[in-house]
Simulated assay, not measured.
Amino acid sequence: MLNEHYWDNRYKNNDIKWDIGYVSTPLKTYFDQLTDKNLKILIPGGGNSYEAEYLHNIGFTEVYVVDVSETALQNIRKRVPTFPSEKLIHQDFFKLEETFDLIIEQTFFCALDPSLRDDYVLKMHQLLKPKGKLVGLLFNFPLTKDGPPFGGSETEYKKRFSPLFDIKIMETSYNSIPQRQGNELFFILQKK
């Protein structure tokens, strides 16, 4: 059910409750600490990707968004006409073959069918350059069968990621947006 048609219809019908309309505070805070504007950055399942827009506007030159929804990618093109079109990739994340210094997680993991979680971890590891980082937010509420979003826990995430990543930070986000306060974990993982 969670296929290209499903997601594109969600964007066409503006049925995107997860979309807050701006870069989330925890990610903005992290981005503002980055100094190398040439980092090759991927935002998978990026949707309207205010994160990509923010990074682009503060001078990052190698930001890529991959999404199965052409409508979401068109939304970025319309909103940020200076964003390079070739870096908006209409493709299944699991078929991507490039490598990146940094991958940003923002409401992508929780949107995937939970049966794909181990595949997600492995694919993230494959897409990252040596010592590359996976950084972002994961929901911290019980895993449900009703979703997306599908929940998860710090214990589950650590168990899944630790074989392939060093967990640098995984803690309750102190600066989440009000409607997500206490339900998000901010994390920084480095490829082993």
Rank of each mutant, 00 (worst) to 15 (best):
P81D: 15
D101E: 13
T172H: 14
D36C: 09
G151Q: 04
T25L: 13
Y174M: 14
L164F: 03
S162M: 12
H56F: 12
E98P: 01
S49E: 12
Y6Q: 12
R10T: 05
I20Y: 02
I89F: 00
L34T: 07
I41C: 08
P163F: 07
E51H: 12
P130Q: 15
K37G: 10
I169R: 15
G136F: 08
L34N: 10
D8R: 05
I103P: 05
T144K: 14
Y22R: 14
F161D: 09
D15E: 08
L134N: 02
Y157C: 05
I89A: 09
V65G: 05
D32R: 00
E171G: 02
G59T: 07
N14F: 11
M1L: 14
T71K: 07
E86W: 12
G147F: 02
N9D: 11
G152H: 04
F93D: 00
K95Y: 11
F60D: 06
L128T: 03
Y174C: 12
R79G: 05
I41N: 04
Y64D: 09
F161G: 02
Y30W: 15
S176H: 03
F150P: 06
P178A: 07
L39M: 10
D101R: 01
P44N: 01
T172Y: 08
G136E: 11
E184R: 01
R117Y: 15
G47P: 03
L34Q: 12
P84F: 11
K133A: 13
I89D: 07
K145V: 04
R180L: 13
A72H: 05
T99E: 14
I103F: 03
Y30F: 15
K78E: 14
Y22D: 12
K159C: 11
I169Q: 11
V68L: 14
Y30N: 02
K78N: 10
F187M: 06
D113K: 09
P149S: 08
V66E: 05
E105L: 01
L134R: 00
L73V: 06
L128F: 10
E70H: 03
F165Q: 09
T107Y: 06
A52K: 02
E86H: 05
S173M: 11
R160P: 02
G151A: 13
T35H: 09
L73C: 02
Y30H: 13
S24H: 04
K145F: 11
